[in-house]
């Protein structure tokens, strides 16, 4: 079984990836690998982690392009490309409060389940419990052992309870609604997730995740010179944001404190024809939603509004 974890830095995806591997290897008697993608350590940025589980030792240490289970700890990371990452018969595990139309997508309200136990939403262990319910590879007992092996004693008890609650919510405990959903999924062609031989992946010619995603110049052009123009931006930071600043222009006194103190420089002056500052505005392609501007505003005219709610409105 192979799992791709999509999450934001700080949500505990790598902890979950490792706990799942530990569950299979320490308790289930299988072989496992777990690793995150590497980059600058930063909170809130999209990241991936991988778990590989097999009956024989795993030699391929490269990132996965496709997996049996693709888990999203943050719904905002789920986009149109999801099917490409799914192996035939694979499933998506999505942290979302609402059901999905496609039977291959299993939605779990991981924020709510974890918040009930912890008092704040930490979705990682919920998805672990869900995987135990949906796969033949690890049992709930294995997941318990995995949690004990990888989490500090202080965190274990609450996380075991969360795993149990998640297991039940997804149908592991035999709840009527959940098993109906499961039946529908099987009828639609999904199969229970099982272990496969690591060499199978090699036969399928699994390739590495490309790291140059979108550029408006060809990589070979860059290779000719180590110098290129400053301000050469190819990717936006907007996907980082869970809240956005909303400015009430009727209250704004144009004191420019928000402009002065924005760590990203995404608040800019809008000038009229004579060059006078008319108002300030936010570049939402690069705003990370840190909230420094809202705190800095002496008039209190900047509110931080949840992204999802804003998108629905």
């Amino acid at each position: 079984m192979e799992v791709i974890w999509h999450a934001r830095g700080g949500q505990g995806a790598f902890t979950a990836a490792r706990a799942l591997g530990a569950a299979a290897a320490l308790s289930g008697g299988l072989h496992a690998l777990a690793f995150p993608t590497f980059g600058p350590e930063r909170r809130g940025a999209p990241m991936r982690a991988y778990t590989k589980i097999a009956a024989s030792p795993i030699g391929d240490r490269s990132a996965l392009r496709q997996a049996d289970v693709v888990a999203y700890l943050d719904e905002t990371l789920f986009d149109d490309g999801w099917e490409a990452e799914l192996k035939p018969g694979g499933i998506v595990l999505l942290n979302a409060p609402h059901p999905a139309a496609d039977p291959r997508i299993v939605c779990v309200d991981a924020d709510a389940i974890s918040a009930e136990v912890l008092g704040r939403p930490i979705p990682n262990t919920v998805l672990l419990g869900a995987i135990a319910a949906l796969s033949d590879v690890v049992t709930l007992e294995d997941v318990h052992e995995g949690i004990k092996a990888t989490m500090s004693v202080r965190l274990q008890e609450a996380n075991l309870r969360i795993a149990d609650a998640a297991f039940k919510a997804v149908g592991g405990g035999g709840s009527a609604r959940a098993s109906q959903e499961l039946d529908a999924r099987v009828a639609a062609g999904a199969r229970p997730v099982t272990v496969h031989d690591a060499s199978e992946a090699a036969r399928q010619n699994v390739t590495r995740t490309p790291y140059l995603r979108e550029t408006f110049a060809l990589p070979e052009d860059f290779a000719r010179s180590t110098c290129f123009t400053g301000g050469h931006l190819v990717s936006e930071n907007a996907g980082w944001r869970s809240v956005r600043p909303v400015l009430d222009e009727t209250v704004c006194t144009l004191c420019l404190q928000c402009y002065l103190l924005c760590p990203d420089g995404t608040i800019f002056k809008v000038r009229d024809e004579e060059g006078n500052v008319e108002r300030v505005a936010v570049d939402f392609a690069f705003c990370k939603g840190c909230g420094v501007c809202a705190k800095a505003c002496p008039a209190g005219c900047i509110r931080m509004v949840p992204e999802r709610k804003e998108a629905r409105a």
């Binding site: 809130g44 980082w240 924005c262 990203d264 420089g265 990370k288």
Partner: peptide, 26 residues
């Protein structure tokens, strides 16, 4: 804040939200 250039010379960086270092460099 009023007199400084409108141009940004450190923009689109990947620092964490609310980074003090990024603000200093900017």
């Amino acid at each position: 804040a009023r007199t400084m250039t409108d141009e940004e010379f450190f923009y689109g960086h990947k620092a964490c939200p609310g980074c003090g270092g990024a603000l200093a460099v900017r």
